[in-house]
Amino acid sequence: MACSAALPAEQAIVQRRIFASAGQEAFFEGHVHALNVVGGVPTSKVRYDNLRAAVAQVLGFSRQRVEAERWTAFRSHYGLQAMYCELGIRGAHEKGGVEGQIGWFRRNHLVPVPEVNSFAQLNEMTERWDRDDDARHIRSQPRPRRTAAGGRLTPLATRSGPRSAVSDTCGTMAP
């Protein structure tokens, strides 16, 4: 599973992590990694596809969802505000950005498949690719990188509110 966190309002903040599974633990660990790298939690809503790790049930053709219990606890712990993609034609454009981003990353960095000895090594390469991609110029103009100091992220060390019993260690991977 490739976990890709993109914060469009912050323009250049994109973090990726690659996992052996597409389970909920990988979903959570990808979040923890991205929040630590960018140094905070988005102050606005974060758009999610209707993936099983977060959504237990979709309620009609609206944005209302019954969230997975552990996702609700995780989201509450970090203070994330979720917004889910609409289904059908009305929401088709919402998923395209992230899917296009993952496709671009796969074509540019994972074809041909890199030869690595571990996921840790592959994720070190992924972090380097993310840094290089952040430095890319579009039409000869650098892409500004906003961080918690730019006001759109709440620093992890200062976030307030109730804490649930979710640790920064999201799970373990069995061999």
Results as ranks from 00 to 15, higher is better:
130 D>H: 11
46 V>R: 07
99 E>K: 05
113 V>N: 15
4 S>F: 10
10 E>C: 12
165 A>D: 11
139 R>Y: 10
148 A>F: 06
116 V>W: 12
156 L>N: 09
133 D>S: 04
131 R>A: 15
50 N>Q: 11
90 R>C: 02
155 P>N: 06
66 V>L: 09
42 P>R: 02
86 E>I: 01
86 E>R: 05
158 T>M: 01
46 V>M: 14
6 A>V: 03
40 G>I: 02
152 R>V: 06
156 L>G: 05
140 S>M: 14
33 H>W: 15
99 E>N: 03
1 M>W: 12
90 R>M: 12
148 A>L: 02
64 Q>G: 00
26 A>S: 11
152 R>H: 10
81 Q>C: 13
25 E>T: 08
140 S>K: 14
149 A>F: 06
34 A>M: 04
33 H>M: 05
83 M>L: 09
156 L>D: 10
50 N>H: 07
69 E>A: 03
89 I>G: 04
92 A>D: 02
59 L>Q: 09
26 A>M: 02
134 D>W: 07
55 V>I: 14
31 H>I: 01
101 Q>T: 09
164 S>W: 02
45 K>F: 06
60 G>R: 07
127 E>P: 06
121 Q>L: 06
159 R>C: 07
123 N>I: 15
124 E>D: 14
9 A>H: 02
17 R>Y: 13
119 F>Q: 14
80 L>Q: 05
50 N>G: 03
36 N>M: 09
126 T>F: 13
84 Y>D: 02
129 W>Q: 05
57 Q>N: 09
28 F>M: 04
132 D>R: 06
10 E>H: 03
112 P>S: 05
40 G>L: 06
53 A>C: 01
1 M>C: 15
5 A>Q: 03
27 F>Q: 12
140 S>A: 14
153 L>Y: 05
136 R>S: 13
104 W>D: 05
67 E>T: 10
145 R>F: 11
78 Y>K: 12
146 R>A: 15
82 A>I: 04
81 Q>R: 09
33 H>I: 04
112 P>T: 10
63 R>S: 07
173 M>A: 14
136 R>A: 11
21 S>Q: 15
49 D>E: 06
130 D>I: 00
142 P>W: 12
158 T>F: 03
50 N>V: 08
17 R>I: 00
26 A>T: 03
96 G>T: 00
11 Q>G: 01
15 Q>M: 09
92 A>Q: 01
29 E>H: 10
120 A>D: 04
18 I>T: 10
114 P>C: 14
59 L>I: 13
121 Q>C: 10
34 A>E: 05
55 V>S: 12
51 L>Y: 05
173 M>I: 15
32 V>Y: 12
161 G>A: 03
165 A>W: 05
103 G>Q: 06
95 K>M: 01
119 F>W: 15
100 G>H: 07
78 Y>R: 03
169 T>C: 11
21 S>P: 07
94 E>L: 06
40 G>V: 04
30 G>R: 08
153 L>I: 03
46 V>G: 11
103 G>L: 08
93 H>R: 10
53 A>N: 12
4 S>L: 13
130 D>A: 13
43 T>C: 05
152 R>A: 00
145 R>P: 04
91 G>T: 03
166 V>I: 03
21 S>Y: 12
62 S>G: 00
99 E>P: 06
120 A>E: 12
125 M>E: 04
64 Q>E: 04
141 Q>V: 11
105 F>K: 11
127 E>I: 12
13 I>Q: 04
1 M>A: 13
